[in-house]
Design a binder for these strands. Structure first.
Lengths: 186, 186
DNA sequence: AAAATATGTCAATATAGCTGACATAACCCG
DNA sequence: CGGGTTATGTCAGCTATATTGACATATTTT
């Protein structure tokens, strides 16, 4: 049941045995905490603006991904967010009701409801993105191109291996998306 | 009230105008999403083990920071987590009841309850850390020392400027803590 | 026509956070 | 000493975000 590697636990008072990683268990622990703190601060950036609309972070995520990938189907959005459709539905309904997101019947498959931001939704999405990207702009402008590449590489590598392909695809689609409509084949 | 840079919004169907940042608004948007996906996957790592103890992520965070910084006072923990004492109390009580965390009266200030992990708590904390650090080990081992430094630098820079000092201090304390007892002066 | 798919919805539940109000004990200061 | 501040606990109620399970509807696929 217990730790496989917890040998000399600090049960008495001896220094914790940092011996299983070649050269930097400490560094790794530090990075884990940095990651926590960095994310904690990052998500906070948009909160004040969201409050004005009585929206939460869930709304933000939906709005963001719909804006980035116009014509996104419900199922695809669920897959990105990794939540259930019931969870999505509440926030999505509020976004639809508020006129920030629109759903159109799929052209090929009329069961689908493809999601698009309205002009107001797009404006809000981008304003939120601007708030959050300010942090990135500040950080990245202080890094050399090489360091930027390393940071990007680092983040990508942090993603589950079997997710990485679809994330990469997502980024490409988002970048390429002219104003797209149809989904690519499953 | 609207986005200052949202000129040619995709109201009709024209390509989104990615023109306001010198060379890489796209790159920044991509990084923001990578950050989201990376964190989403990162926090997931420990969940299965936590379930066995009927604990959630909130318990994990408390356990982690108490283990990393033995003798942590309640107020200091609240400051790290940025939550209210009422929120903390529920999970902390469960950790105390379960014998994973112990609270001792402060030596200098008897109002304080200084927190320590029990041997079981420490074992759990480290097993959880091991699960999560596995991801970091995998990622960092694929990066050059330079790239590692860049990634670390990136994460640190992502933290709020006025928090950075205290985070740095936290890391140092955690690294230095032998199995410590007393707090350093406030 | 039957089966599978995409989505919506109702209901109940859990977790993690919040505010506000109030209580207790211990410390600090004049 | 006595009053103010600090550290913490606790009660009560609220919100946001997620879950599972069951069932409904329309549409596409076979």
């Amino acid at each position: 049941m217990n730790s496989a590697s917890a040998k000399a636990l600090r049960s008495g008072g001896d220094p914790p045995a940092r011996d299983f990683a070649p050269e930097s268990d400490d560094a790794i622990f530090d990075m884990m905490e940095l990651f926590f703190f960095a994310y904690r601060d990052f998500v906070k950036d948009a909160d004040r603006l969201l409050e004005k609309y009585k929206f939460g972070r869930a709304h933000h995520r939906v709005l963001h991904f719909v804006d980035r990938r116009p014509g996104l189907a419900i199922a695809a959005l669920l897959d990105i967010l990794k939540i259930t459709k019931q969870s999505l539905n509440r926030v999505l309904k509020q976004l639809l009701d508020g006129g920030f997101v629109e759903a159109r019947e799929g052209a090929n498959d009329r069961r689908q409801r493809l999601l698009y931001t309205s002009p107001e939704g797009a404006a809000l999405a981008r304003e939120l993105a601007r708030l959050q990207s300010a942090r990135f702009v500040r950080v990245l402008s202080g890094l050399s191109p090489d360091a930027r590449r390393s940071a990007t590489e680092f983040l990508l590598a942090m993603i589950d291996q079997d997710e990485r392909a679809s994330v990469r695809a997502h980024l490409l689609v988002a970048a390429a998306a002219p104003s797209a409509g149809e989904e690519s084949p499953p």
